[in-house]
Computed example of a mutant assay.
Amino acid sequence: MYITITPQKLGSHYLQSAGDFVDYLEKENQGKTQNEMEAFFDPYDDKISAEEVKTSIDENTTKLKKKEPKFYSITINPSARELAHIADKPSALKAYTRSLMENYAKAFHREIEGRKITKDDILYFAKLEHQRRYKGTDRAVRENRPYIQKIVRLQHEMVLIKKGEMEGSIQTKQQSIRELQQKSPHQQQGKMIEEGMIKEGDQRHIHVLVSRKDRSNRYSLSPGSRYKASTTMLHGKEVKRGFDRDQFFKAAEEVFDRKFQYRRNYVESYQARNTFLKHPERYFKQLLRLPAPEKKIAFQLLKERGVKLPLTTIPLTSSQLAGKIMTKLKKGITKAIHSGSIEL
């Protein structure tokens, strides 16, 4: 599970309206009939229109300054293994999202009129999406880039030949392009993977738009608070503040595992991510100490996420964790962890 929470920006400026972001999330509905369209949902309703989302978020911004985010985006990205486990059940991810947002509310170290914050205080709208496109940062695109660059150069040369500004055979250039496309290391259904191409397989994920203000439009609730739990004085009163990210992330994982009876492998866990970031040598030791069946799954998951080094030769001491081997290993493991874990 990979979850991100981000304030919505355009460059260095916070968006003043949710309109553009909502329109972006409507892209998969283009060309579909009303019955085929995927609607927004909230804690109570599965059929919320894009216009209602825009209006509700944009009108819930009282006293927020231009330099403050008006809303946050939470992206819930189950791994391929997690999606296969829950099977093709749209209602499952929606139910999980609602449970997750209950824990989002609990993660705030805040009170409203003397009581703890609950899901009923959080104004949010969520959307299930079924497609993903390759980004320029994806490994397949990066490793195909040298081939793409050569193809672009050949295409430019073909244009010059047609204009009479360069000598050569267009047919020869076309054949070279076909050979480069066939030799590219990453392909999908016989075509070279490029930025913008739709990814094959189960790509279900959830986008959540959550207002910075509570439903009453009176209290500011920021998951980006640098405080985990603290108190401050405001207008002569002691006020609690903070958002416990660790609590939220752990709950996100625990809720999924409990709701779907999912047996999480070590490399998929929030605990593993934290261990790797703080004590990489402990992370590698734990990998090698896993029971044989769990270790096999762990190595397979890492391999699927691009870790190329033979993990049976992982260095285990601090002195061995230096140099080129450690650099390559950390780079691969970092990407693997990010593709199957949680971060803010």
Results as ranks from 00 to 15, higher is better:
Lys330Gly: 07
Leu316Lys: 11
Arg178Phe: 12
His207Gln: 10
Tyr227Arg: 09
Val267Phe: 02
Glu238Ala: 14
Gly168Val: 00
Tyr262Ile: 13
Pro223Lys: 04
Glu36Ser: 09
Pro185Trp: 13
Pro43Cys: 05
Ser79Tyr: 10
Glu51Tyr: 11
His235Asp: 14
Gln8Arg: 14
Arg258Met: 14
Glu179Ala: 15
Ala322Arg: 15
Lys191Leu: 01
Phe21Pro: 01
Glu200Trp: 06
Thr317Asp: 10
Thr62Gly: 00
Ala84Glu: 10
Arg204Met: 06
Ser222Ala: 14
Phe299Leu: 13
Leu93Met: 09
Asn29Glu: 09
His235Asn: 13
Phe248Ala: 02
Pro43Lys: 15
Pro310Ala: 03
Arg218Gly: 04
Gly168Cys: 01
Ile74Val: 13
Pro310Thr: 06
Lys127Val: 07
Arg305Leu: 10
Lys47Ser: 08
His13Phe: 07
Tyr283Ile: 11
Gly31Trp: 08
Val159Glu: 00
Thr334Tyr: 02
Lys119Asp: 12
Asp42His: 06
Gln34Ala: 13
Glu268Cys: 06
Ile170Asp: 00
Phe21Arg: 14
Ser216Thr: 15
Arg264Phe: 06
Arg133Ser: 11
Lys54Ala: 12
Lys331Asn: 11
Phe243Lys: 02
Phe243Arg: 07
Ile48Ser: 14
Ala336Thr: 04
Tyr134Arg: 05
Lys259Thr: 14
Arg132Glu: 13
Tyr262Thr: 05
Ser73Thr: 15
Gly201Asn: 11
Ile3Lys: 01
Asp257Trp: 03
